[in-house]
Design a protein around this nucleic acid. Structure first.
Length: 663
DNA sequence: CTGCTCGGCGCG
DNA sequence: AAAGCGCGCCGAGCAG
């Protein structure tokens, strides 16, 4: 078995210590190696080549980016921070020393803030505040003793920027007086690892939780690699899309003349060709010099004129929901809110241009030229993923809205010349996961084909695909009203096991109990507020209002736990898919006898991940092999999590040159 | 000026 | 064609 090597920072560099699978340094194991931070990439690369160890470290998000920057890729790791969170909360390891010990600094380690906002080498970060501000509670404490500060300042003078200074600040200091500042006990990496292994070994179902921890760790590597490599992004194409929909960029030479005087001025002059991104380096806010009236892109200004004309209100302001609502009311439009889907049902000539305006406004503010300037550099968008960032185990993201890329702009995601994208999507992942979780043979049978919802229709349970989808979503989310609620009884008759499964999860949540995913991620306990509300409703003399509030809160928590088991297990499937794929892609690009080993970005690699969908960027000649790898990985994920359960997890695969062509 | 909530909307 | 889950981000508007 390949060894585990614990990586830990010291005031003077890094210690690498081999340990066995129980986290112990047995007598037949060599003593620790030490090296400086600068030497770390070489040391890791060498050990990776000869031993292929599992690297045990506090946090991939802290250690791995520096290695990747030095072109060092590793195969496996244990992300102690992520594993700690899982093991501490899991019902499967509830009796372990790890879970029963008082909170340590591992419980207050924040997910790392954005390490180096993409496209801003000067530091300072992008919008939304760069995360790095103070990381209290990280092992070692926020306050570093003098010796450490020396190291830090020393490094800053000839900064190679491979590693964040936090690594050094986080060095264990427990043996050098000056204790941590958080007041929580500091547990070394080696000791934490030992406790985690013991927790897993003693778990109710060790193989499940072990798989979860392994998959979570593999995911942390994939996340760092994807951030490092980035998603190929054509600024020119993005600009084309924006100009096409909005008109020329305001403030650019092309748009300056007509837009400057007054926003209501008609665009007049024939629009010149799109302005190149001339001032790409200047901060986006630079255009804000004209603060009096916002300079809207031509197309939006036009729509604004029409909206005001139709409302008979020259001051109507669609940018402010409050003001807009008042303006609509004044014009005799009975709107309850300014939400688009509500406005859609209203019959008034001002509504169509208003809906169009809101659409464009959203595009401009969320993914317009400012976004392009901020997040895209050198033809790549570098999303910062946060593995485990969602309670259910899904990834979150920070900066640039990586997981919300609107379809409108996906055309800007373009493969390099000679390369292509292989985009894959798990088909109806969540209902399939539910079928497997519940062991619902009938639903499994309905999912035998490529489309589960069609299968449900074919079984005669409901009449249309739309109804099947609506009904299943309602069942998994806890919807009760409308079309989806009406479908539920039929689904319950056709698929009693599946529906009973989510109902049981809902009832557990309503009672304040926790639920767990297939691999053992356990939902959080309800908060004190929730418990107080329930207590109040049970007390003597509780009012109807109190009881009603408690019931409502209970149902709400039940919807959460109901969804938790499905969404969380789907996230586990996706994580296993990703992990398996990552390995297969690497092997795919492995050097032949004659070829030199290529770095990550020269091989087929993961470029984007979106809950149940992946984008692989690959040289064209490997596209077919990548598609195969995607399918094999999906099958493997199903086997890993559900064994021989007769549930299939088909994926759709498309080979395309731009992301908008998939699906 | 910063920091916060909220309405609204993008994604799965 | 809108109830029910999970997110992040934007601008407006308010409080400090």
């Amino acid at each position: 078995m390949s060894p585990f090597i614990v990586v830990s920072a010291t005031p003077h560099g890094v210690t690498l210590q081999r340990v066995d699978e129980r986290g112990a340094t047995a007598s037949n194991i060599d003593g620790p190696l030490t090296c400086s931070l600068d030497e770390l990439p070489d040391a890791v690369a060498r050990l990776e080549r000869v031993e292929r160890p599992r690297w045990v470290w506090s946090d991939s998000a802290r250690w791995y980016p520096g290695l990747l920057a030095a072109s060092v890729r590793i195969e496996r790791c244990v992300d102690l921070r992520l594993a700690h969170t899982i093991l501490r909360a899991s019902e499967l390891t509830a009796a372990s020393e790890l879970a029963t010990a008082p909170a340590s600094e591992w419980d207050s380690m924040p997910a790392l803030g954005n390490p180096g906002t993409p496209g801003n080498p000067g530091g300072a970060g992008g919008p939304g505040g760069s995360g790095g501000s103070g990381n209290p509670g990280y092992p070692g404490g926020a306050v570093a003793p003098d010796g450490i500060l020396d190291v830090v300042t020393h490094r800053r003078t000839h900064d190679t920027a491979l590693f964040d200074d936090d690594l050094v600040e986080a060095a264990p200091v427990s043996h050098t007086a000056a204790g941590p500042s958080s007041g929580r006990p500091r547990i070394t990496e080696a000791e934490e690892f030992r406790r985690q292994r013991a927790a897993i070994a003693g778990a109710t179902d060790p193989s499940r939780i072990a798989l979860l921890v392994a998959a979570e760790s593999a995911g942390s590597l994939a996340a760092a690699e994807m951030q490092h490599v980035g998603l190929p992004w054509s600024a020119a194409e993005h600009d084309r899309i924006l100009t096409d929909l909005l008109g020329p960029r305001p403030g650019s030479q092309a748009a300056a003349a007509p837009a400057a005087s007054h926003p209501t001025t008609a665009p007049g002059t024939a629009s010149p060709p799109a302005a190149p991104r001339a001032a790409a380096g200047t901060p986006a806010a630079g255009t804000a010099a004209t603060t009096a009236t916002p300079t809207r892109p031509a197309r939006m200004a036009e729509l604004l004129d029409r909206i005001r004309a139709e409302l008979g209100d020259p001051t109507a302001n669609p940018d402010s929901p409050v003001e807009l609502l008042k303006a609509l009311r004044r014009a005799g439009i009975d709107a309850r809110s300014t939400r688009s889907w509500e406005l859609k049902s209203l019959d008034h000539p001002a509504i169509p241009p208003l809906l169009e305006y809101k659409k464009l406004s959203r595009l401009l503010s969320a993914n317009g030229w400012n976004w392009l300037d901020t997040w895209v550099r050198d033809g790549r968008f570098h999303p910062h993923y946060i593995p485990g960032g969602v309670v259910t185990g899904r990834w979150a993201s920070e900066g640039g809205g990586a997981l919300q890329l609107p379809k409108q702009v996906r055309g800007a995601v373009r493969a390099d010349p000679g390369w292509t994208f292989v985009v894959a999507d798990a088909a109806q992942l969540e209902p399939r996961v539910l079928a497997a979780l519940a062991g619902d043979r009938a639903m499994a049978a309905a999912g035998r084909g490529l489309d589960l919802y069609d299968g449900i229709v074919a079984s005669g349970a409901v009449d249309t695909r739309a109804h099947a989808k609506l009904g299943m979503l309602g069942a998994m989310y806890g919807g009760t009203s409308g079309e989806s609620g009406r479908m539920l009884p039929r689904l319950a008759r056709a698929y009693p096991a599946a529906i009973a499964f989510v109902e049981a999860a809902a009832r557990a949540g309503e009672a304040g109990n926790r639920v767990s995913t297939r691999l053992g991620r356990t939902s959080p306990r309800p908060g004190d507020d929730w418990l107080d509300v329930q207590d109040a409703a049970r007390a003597d003399g509780a009012t109807d209002a109190q009881r009603s509030r408690a019931r409502s809160a209970a149902r709400s928590w039940g919807r959460f736990t109901r969804n938790f088991v499905v969404q969380g297990t789907a996230a586990e499937w996706a994580l296993c898919w990703l992990a398996s794929l990552r390995t297969r892609l690497w092997e795919l690009g492995a050097p032949t006898a004659t070829a030199e080993a290529a770095p990550l970005e020269r091989r087929p690699h993961l470029a984007f991940f979106l809950h149940d969908e992946v984008v692989v960027h690959t040289p064209r000649e490997h596209a077919e092999a990548v598609a195969e790898a995607l399918r094999h990985s999906a099958a493997e994920a199903g086997r890993l999590i559900f064994g021989d359960a007769p549930v299939e997890f088909p994926i759709t695969v498309a080979t395309v040159d731009s992301y908008d062509k998939a699906k």
